[in-house]
Write a protein that binds this DNA or RNA. Structure first.
Lengths: 213, 213
DNA sequence: CTTTGTGAACTTCTTCACAGCT
DNA sequence: AGCTGTGAAGAAGTTCACAAAG
């Protein structure tokens, strides 16, 4: 386990920088200033420089950051220079959309198994991926070297499925259910609650608060 | 009683409290302490009390918070005691999943129009909702009193579609694309970037940092 | 007793401002 | 000149600790 020495929001921003850099690379750009990176992401230049400086000295004074080198470094930093094996748990509408989503494959995030509890689905396949019984998750995860579970079961199932995941080799969970699951010593959970995002949007709209505050 | 200033993360947590309270209500509970609300959401009791205190004095000393009254208050606060009309922009896999998603309807968040640019889709309907041309969004949004757009177009389309939305009566955008859109005076944007959530997960996993905090 | 509501202390995060390099 | 990297200042957010109330 490591001690973290940077603000947590920095990691999220690194993913934005990477995406922006890849777009710049495609456009044939060789260098980019913190000023421009900031503008393209709705941040301040100082923020961009600080964020990057936590992980190295990637820039050249007077010149900016070399686009392709920085992109490569961020990819490495974010753990995206290798493949990750994922499983989907809960094959509903959202789950199906996520499995088919191109954005994951482009990043080397590969679904290699789908788990569900519906006997009608178990044994069949979706998008070329086998659908298996959730009960078999620990065994399969180990065999297939699955490190991340994407959780899209109904809220009522979330806690019990999480317990099963805890008993496996899986180290990360991307939780799309409204149940709030908490990280443990062994598992890192990221909650992505879609309804709740909308709910905080309605809060701001109903008070006519715009532009962030 | 009504404060004008509170931490931004508080709003997100209010949505968690509401969900927890509704579960407690269903279980027949009459009161709940900040201690218990905190435990159920992976927070501290002081945090819960502070969050709630920004918006009123809902608790009773020695007794805790009355579940149903607090739930009602939070619902009102979050702007969820009325209906909101939404439109989906971009009917891909993710869009289809979101339209069918029960969680929105349960909260009074109703999709009343779908916009796409594919001529094959325009004029047909999905899930009982008309599919219209994005170009007609400003007109339709006004007619149908649509206040929120859920954006699920490909990244390459995101910026131009956002410009169209800006020219309409729409006040809030839930952005599922990887393009980072920024709020303006008139529009409040919430970015929900699924791939990027997963990317920050791989960052932590590849460094063996656990315990999310 | 129990538990809230809250100033004060503390921690975390962002911005400022400028030294120093190209 | 142009631009990064960074210590210091400032802002934002969280936790502490306790008075007050049932």
């Amino acid at each position: 386990m490591q001690r973290i020495s940077f603000p947590l929001p920095t990691v999220e921003r690194l993913t934005y920088y990477l995406r922006t850099l890849e777009a710049l690379l495609l456009a044939g750009r060789e260098n980019v200033s913190s000023e421009e990176l900031a503008r393209l992401n709705g941040l301040t230049a100082a923020q961009v420089r600080k964020d990057l400086a936590y992980f190295g000295s990637f820039g050249q004074k007077g010149k900016g950051y070399p686009v392709s080198v920085l992109a490569e470094n961020l990819k490495e930093l974010l753990g995206l220079s290798r493949e990750w094996f994922l499983c989907l748990v809960g094959l509903g509408n959202l789950g199906r959309a996520l499995v088919r989503f191109k954005g994951f494959a482009e990043r080397g995030l590969r679904f290699v198994a789908i788990f569900d509890k519906d006997p009608k689905k178990i044994g069949t396949e979706f998008y070329g991926i086998n659908i298996l019984d959730i009960a078999d998750l620990p065994e399969i995860a180990q065999k297939q070297k699955i490190e991340i579970a994407v959780l899209t079961v109904p809220e009522s199932e979330a806690k019990s499925v999480y317990e099963v995941i805890k008993c496996s080799v899986i180290k990360g969970v991307l939780n799309f259910t409204t149940a709030s699951l908490t990280s443990t010593e062994k598992i890192f959970v990221k909650n992505v609650s879609i309804v709740q995002e909308l709910e905080s949007l309605t809060f701001y709209l109903s008070r006519n608060i715009v532009g962030g505050r």
